[in-house]
């Protein structure tokens, strides 16, 4: 089946190291996205037409553009056209944060908007201050709606980082390809074994998030 290639030399370690690169890019992008997304999402709930227009355009651009195009645009566009030297890893973090921030902001905006006005009003009618209303009534409800959705976004971001091999970053998929290439003669079936292993690695990277989301959804069902 070709699994023997994984035992050869440092192959398994290299795969895991490759996954590490993908996860590092994801972790940084996800953190940036969550932070900026929350800020932007709250800003997006504003009634100001300029704010709403600008954020709508931003979101549309991010949604329409395939991430790969954005990645090429930033990496090759910036290096070649503008003569800037950007590290491939930095370029990918930039692109994934740009994308993740938009998606996260939209989730936050949606979650805040989904809280009925009566929740604000009945809290105010009970004498709670603005701040108390947010802290004890609104935000806990927003977070409950947000967590499962943002976990979904996080796993999507982790999976999408496999695109970074397209700009020369040696992450898990790229390592896999290299292993297959190097063993083409000795183990012609290596492709199956390598990709199956990568599948399992990604599964274990995303699975905990999935479990956490299910757990929280259950817990907050009431």
């Amino acid at each position: 089946m070709g699994f023997e290639v994984l035992l050869k030399g440092q192959n398994m370690a290299r795969l895991i190291e490759g996954l590490g690169v993908a996860l590092r890019i994801s972790a940084i992008s996800v953190s940036v996205s969550i932070f900026l997304g929350i800020v932007l999402g709250v800003v997006m709930t504003s009634k100001n037409p300029v704010v709403r227009f600008v954020s709508a355009v931003y979101l549309e651009i991010v949604r329409i553009m395939p991430q790969m195009v954005l990645l090429f645009l930033v990496f090759f566009g910036a290096t070649k056209a503008l003569g800037l030297r950007i590290e491939a890893e930095f370029a990918s973090i930039l692109v994934f944060s740009f994308w993740g921030t938009a998606e996260m902001a939209d989730l936050v905006r949606g979650a805040v908007k989904s809280i009925p006005v009566i929740q604000y009003e009945s809290s105010e009618a009970l004498g709670l201050s603005r701040l108390q209303t947010y802290v004890y009534v609104i935000l806990p409800q927003v977070v409950r709606r947000l967590i499962p959705l943002s976990i979904n976004l996080i796993t999507r971001m982790i999976k999408t980082t496999s695109l970074v091999m397209m700009i020369g970053i040696v992450e898990v998929l790229k390592v896999g390809q290299q292993i297959i290439e190097a063993n083409r003669k000795s183990s012609p079936n290596a492709a199956f074994a390598v990709f199956a292993t990568i599948f399992v690695l990604y599964f274990f990277a995303c699975w905990p998030f999935s479990c956490l989301s299910k757990y929280l959804e259950k817990k907050w069902e009431n």
């Binding site: 009566i118 929740q119 009534v137 409950r144 907050w220």
Partner: peptide
């Protein structure tokens, strides 16, 4: 109020 407005969480 008319609509149920208890805090659901």
């Amino acid at each position: 109020f008319q609509s149920y407005d208890l805090f659901p969480h």
